[in-house]
Structure formats: C-alpha cells, structure tokens
C-alpha cells in the first residue's frame, strides 16, 4: 500500500490483515460469549482456551510476537489448567448445571450492554481515522521486547518477581490444611486428609440432587 492510500484508508477497502483480524476477532468474541453463557462449567474453561488462543493470533497480527507466545504459554498453558484444577477440586458438576447464572442476569445484561454501547461509541468516534502502520520494523520482536525490558524496565521486572514470590507464599499459606500448633506440622497433613474429605462430599452429593 502506498503512502497516499495509507493516509486516508477507508473502511470499505480492507487489507488482508484487517480481514483476518476481523474474522479472528469474531471467533474470539463468540468464544468469549460462550464462556460467559454456557451452563456447563468445563465447557466454559474450554471456550476460554479458544478465546485466549484467538487473542494470541490477534497479537501476532499486530506484530507483537513475543506477547503472543507468552499469551499461549501462560494463559492457555497454565491459567486454564489452574482453572480446570479449581473446577475439579470444588467438585463442579459435570454436565449441565441449572444454577450457573444468578438471578440478576438481566441487570448484568443491561449494565454490560450500556457499557458496550457507550464505549464503542466513544472509541469509534475517537479512532475513526487512526491508522496503524504495520510495515517497517517489527515492533514486538523478541529482541526489541527483551532489550527494552532489561534496559528500561528492569526495576519493575524485579519488583514483579518479588510479587510473584509473595503470591506463591500466600497461595501455599492459604492452601494449608492444618491451622493448629506449629509443633505438629508434618503429621496432621496426612491424617487430616481422609477426615476432611469424608465430611466434604456430603454437601456436594446433596447439591447434585437439587
């Protein structure tokens, strides 16, 4: 595309990148809608995989390749697996569950629709003529991202590692079963497991009947 066409590009003559972006964006949006509306909890996690993978492809189309692979690694690889583990550990019902949505669904729909209408109006009005030039040097290559990250953003990067450590320690502390004296830390974890699992399935079994 030459410069005179890039100065005032129209919406009626989309480039190939734009067509691909819109198609994958529609797939991503559909997967996100299914994530928040499906009544099967495990399917919601699997549709979330589709939505996050579609977003990774969008990052690739925006020439942010390092972000795209980090998205695939962290979101699709670990966050969804964590969510599936959470669904299993909270004994989520397999199959259709009638009470996946709460009673204030219509209010939520109204709030979301109003927010979407207002934000789409503002964003389209603001960026109607703005054009991203995707040609030239790749903005998000691994080399560029790494150089900027370790040259200009070293201090936030290290602070973030401390935050991750704190989150790790916090998750371990929250997940510990024994809350008694610290003298017997080793044995109650083994003995408490059958007792705790013995009294937990009773409400879950009652929940499945309702």
């Amino acid at each position: 595309m030459n410069l005179s066409a890039a100065a005032h590009p129209g919406f009626l003559s989309p480039t190939g990148v734009e067509i691909t972006f819109v198609l994958i964006g529609l797939a991503t949006l559909g997967a996100a809608l299914l994530t928040v509306t499906t009544r099967q909890l495990v399917h919601a996690a699997l549709w979330l995989v589709v939505a996050l993978g579609g977003l990774a492809v969008e990052y690739l189309l925006l020439t942010a390749e390092f972000i795209a692979w980090v998205q695939v690694l962290i979101y699709v690889g670990s966050v969804v697996v964590l969510l599936l583990f959470g669904l299993m550990l909270t004994k989520a019902p397999i199959g259709r569950s009638a009470d996946a949505d709460s009673e204030n669904r219509l209010v939520a729909l109204g709030v979301a629709a109003a927010a979407a209408a207002a934000l789409v109006w503002v964003v389209v009005d603001a960026f109607r003529t703005t054009w991203i030039n995707l040609h030239g040097a790749v903005q998000g290559s691994s080399r560029a991202t790494g150089e900027s990250l370790f040259r200009h953003w070293v201090l936030p990067f290290e602070a973030l590692s401390v935050l991750l450590l704190a989150a790790l320690v916090g998750a371990i502390v929250l997940s510990r079963r024994d809350t008694g004296s610290p003298a017997d830390t080793a044995t109650p974890a083994d003995t408490a497991t059958p007792a705790d699992t013995a009294d937990v399935p009773a409400p879950a079994a009652g929940k499945e009947h309702t």
Partner: peptide
Amino acid sequence: CVGLYGVLAR
C-alpha cells in the same frame, strides 16, 4: 463488556 457481564451474572 463480555467479561463484565460474566462477572456480574455468574
């Protein structure tokens, strides 16, 4: 907004 709906409705 889809995420907002999910947070409020789920």
